[in-house]
Simulated assay, not measured.
Amino acid sequence: MNYKNITIAGSGVLGYQIAFQSAFHGFHVTVYDITDENLERAKAKFDIMSEAFKIDLQATQQQIDKTRQNLTYTSNLAEAVKNADLLIEAVPENPTIKIDFYKKLAKVAPEKTVFATNSSTLLPSQFAEATGRPSKFIALHFANTIWIHNTAEIMGHPKTDPNVFEDVVAFAKAIGMLALPLHKEQPGYILNSLLVPLLSAATSLLVSEVADPETIDKTWMKATGAPLGPFGILDVVGITTAYNIDKIAAEKTKDALKIKTVKYLKDNYIDKNKLGVSTGEGFYTYPNPAYKEADFLK
């Protein structure tokens, strides 16, 4: 693996974390997003991440300064990928948006560039042909707060070059991840194959008026010892991501409860900009959500 220059496309919930983590480990990282406003927001989030790295990883100011030097920003796609050894796509979890992005990317990326999708639930084979380089295309999925929950699931598709697969595994290790290779395509990889049914079950209980979010979270946290319940997790992941996943499922299955869930999330959260931790409010309010209170489980 001789990657040096990494491009992150999309500076949202996971994109900016992948960028900072890669830069922290010595890679030259270009952050691409469709507007300069989005990039300015990413820079503000890097201020917060800098403090988190100091607290959680005992990073020195010198390390943070070096990380900042390794980061550049652009809203010009051709400029963003002109030197890229690896591009990690972290654009919204919507097949149409991703396919459109890859078609534009294929026209401007150098031949050497490997493409990786950070999709949470979609298969790389869905986009392989749109990339124009199926053999150099792979899925590389990270868990949120990647400097702490440092997992990287690596999943190829039938046409992925085995050498590309091994290079991406090596890159994941090089940025401090626990590399988790998957032997075949699986919607949701390992993490979301386990997590999405939990979150889906929780929202179904809520929408069916069985119990409120706090009661559901208390049940899960107390009974399993988990530090977060499903609604706390949804706030961290971002309610928009859950909404998009449920919307795809509702359109595919026509399931009445799924359709009801999509409407519920849209009316009560998406339309009110209550998107979770990122907006300061979701199922809980931040920075001091109820589940962090000492007596939450009493």
Rank of each mutant, 00 (worst) to 15 (best):
I239R: 00
I239T: 04
I239E: 00
T240M: 11
T240N: 11
T240R: 04
T240A: 10
T241Y: 01
T241F: 03
T241S: 07
T241H: 08
A242M: 13
Y243E: 02
Y243P: 03
N244K: 11
N244Y: 12
N244G: 05
I245P: 01
I245E: 01
D246M: 14
D246E: 13
D246C: 13
K247C: 05
K247P: 07
K247F: 07
I248V: 14
A249F: 07
A249Q: 09
A249P: 05
A249M: 13
A250D: 05
A250G: 05
E251R: 14
K252F: 08
T253N: 12
T253S: 15
K254V: 02
K254M: 08
K254C: 06
K254E: 12
D255V: 09
D255Q: 08
A256R: 05
L257Y: 04
L257R: 09
K258I: 08
K258L: 15
I259W: 00
I259Q: 14
I259M: 11
I259G: 00
K260D: 15
T261I: 14
T261C: 12
T261K: 08
T261G: 05
K263W: 10
K263L: 14
Y264W: 15
Y264P: 00
L265R: 09
K266Y: 15
D267V: 07
D267M: 11
N268T: 07
N268M: 13
N268P: 01
N268K: 13
N268R: 08
N268E: 15
I270L: 13
I270N: 07
I270F: 11
D271T: 06
D271Y: 10
K272I: 09
K272Q: 15
N273I: 08
N273Y: 12
N273R: 06
K274Y: 10
K274N: 12
L275R: 00
L275I: 13
L275N: 02
G276N: 04
G276L: 03
G276T: 05
V277F: 09
V277K: 03
S278F: 09
S278W: 04
T279W: 06
T279H: 08
T279N: 10
G280D: 12
G280N: 10
G280M: 06
G280Q: 09
E281Q: 14
E281N: 12
E281R: 07
E281I: 09
F283W: 07
F283M: 02
F283R: 00
F283C: 00
Y284M: 01
T285N: 09
T285W: 00
Y286H: 10
Y286P: 06
P287Y: 09
P287F: 06
N288Q: 14
N288R: 07
P289G: 03
P289R: 00
A290H: 04
Y291W: 13
Y291K: 02
E293D: 12
E293V: 03
E293Q: 14
E293T: 06
A294H: 14
A294C: 04
A294V: 07
A294D: 12
D295V: 03
D295I: 01
F296N: 03
F296S: 02
F296V: 02
L297K: 05
L297V: 02
L297Y: 03
